[in-house]
Design a protein around this nucleic acid. Structure first.
Length: 354
DNA sequence: GAGTCGTGGCG
DNA sequence: TCGCCAAGACT
């Protein structure tokens, strides 16, 4: 029992909450929607510049629906989880065709749109329309697991169901928009993962984790497991004309973006490069190594940079391959590790063909 | 239910 | 350097 939970939280929010986030001014359903999608598994500071550019170019569902997917992906590139961009684009077309450009206000209709799950639907309805609906994101999970001393890893469905129940029971009948933002602000600013600022917490008085001195151990960590390492060799083929890349499949990792040739083709590519490698090794130095950690595995990517010989070689024959030019890259976007590599190395700007 | 999907920050 | 994980949803 925690009577007055929402009242204390809202009072704290007035003075200490975040009130200047871009999607709060103006707080339309469309802008809240875009922000919620971008914020999935992504920090606020990272999202802000992407959000601003995105809604500047696509100010409403119609504009977004009319735009080619390539342009949407371009504004998303570097943000990660590109399925979000594809789903957002698809959903915008549904909203225009089926709902006359207005986001539906029924939870079920909202959840039926691609990319919108239970929590995101609730967040949109609460923030844009003040509907008293509970959300359960990473912040809320942490706040509730501590305040009610909920044991178990929140990723477990049983624990998740418990947390949803608590979340539902605490939502106030009014001021749902402020309450929702307040919960996330509390989790982000006070009830942080490490070293939470309990002395400044408005609901510390009846926080069970605090009363039991278990703040540091809640919420329970996910069960550990081994992280496999995948090592790959990749070739970054440079020439005065540009860099050889190919477009990836529309789904899967880096879907719809441009990157190095895949799998079998890449193996052949490396083989064919071997002959050239010795001659340019001294000039270009050792291969650049990019170690990248994904959610569940570690990818060691070795990138070999060298210049094409003047005579055409087989790697230019691939149907899927395209010649990369700087201007084109900005129109589509590159995977961050590769984009960073190109930025550090400097991209050729003297390309004329392709 | 368990994997997958990006990137960046932090201890 | 390394493991964890953050405004989750989808397969």
């Amino acid at each position: 029992m925690s009577s007055g939970f929402a009242s204390r939280l809202l009072a704290w929010f007035e003075r200490h909450g975040r009130h200047g986030l871009p999607w709060q001014h103006p707080r339309t359903a469309y802008r809240v929607w875009v922000s919620e999608i971008m914020l999935q598994q992504t920090r606020v500071e990272t999202v802000v510049p992407y959000f601003t550019a995105f809604v500047d170019r696509f100010p409403d569902p119609e504009t977004l629906a009319d735009a080619p997917l390539d342009e949407v992906l371009h504004l998303w590139s570097g943000l990660g989880y590109y399925a979000r961009a594809r789903n957002l684009h698809r959903a915008a077309r549904v909203v225009v065709e089926r709902y006359r450009g207005e986001l539906p206000q029924e939870p079920a209709a909202l959840e039926a749109l691609p990319g919108i799950g239970r929590s995101t639907a609730a967040a949109i309805l609460a923030q844009a329309h003040d509907r008293p609906m509970a959300i359960l994101d990473g912040n809320v999970r942490r706040v509730l697991a501590r305040h009610r001393a909920v044991d178990g890893w929140p990723g477990q469905s049983r624990v998740q169901a418990t947390l949803w129940g608590i979340a539902e029971s605490l939502v106030p009948g009014s001021r749902a928009a402020d309450y929702t933002q307040a919960m996330m602000d509390l989790g982000a600013l006070i009830c942080t993962r490490s070293r939470p600022a309990c002395s400044r917490c408005p609901v510390a008085g009846d926080c069970q984790a605090r009363l039991q001195d278990r703040v540091a151990e809640l919420p329970a960590a996910r069960p550990g497991r081994a992280v496999p390492t995948r090592t790959r060799w990749a070739a970054l083929v440079r020439s005065p004309a540009g860099i050889l890349l190919e477009r990836r499949a529309p789904s899967g990792i880096w879907g719809g973006l441009y990157s190095l040739p895949e799998a079998d083709e890449r193996e052949q590519l490396v083989d064919r490069m071997t002959a050239c490698w010795a001659g340019v090794c001294e000039q270009d130095g050792p291969p650049a190594r990019i170690a990248h950690t994904f959610s569940h595995y570690r990818l060691d990517l070795w990138i070999v940079s060298f210049r094409l010989p003047s005579v055409p070689c087989g790697i230019m024959e691939g149907q899927a391959a395209i010649w990369y030019k700087p201007a084109f890259s900005h129109a589509v976007g590159l995977p961050a590790p590769i984009a960073r590599f190109l930025r550090d190395q400097g991209t050729p700007h003297d390309g004329t063909n392709g």
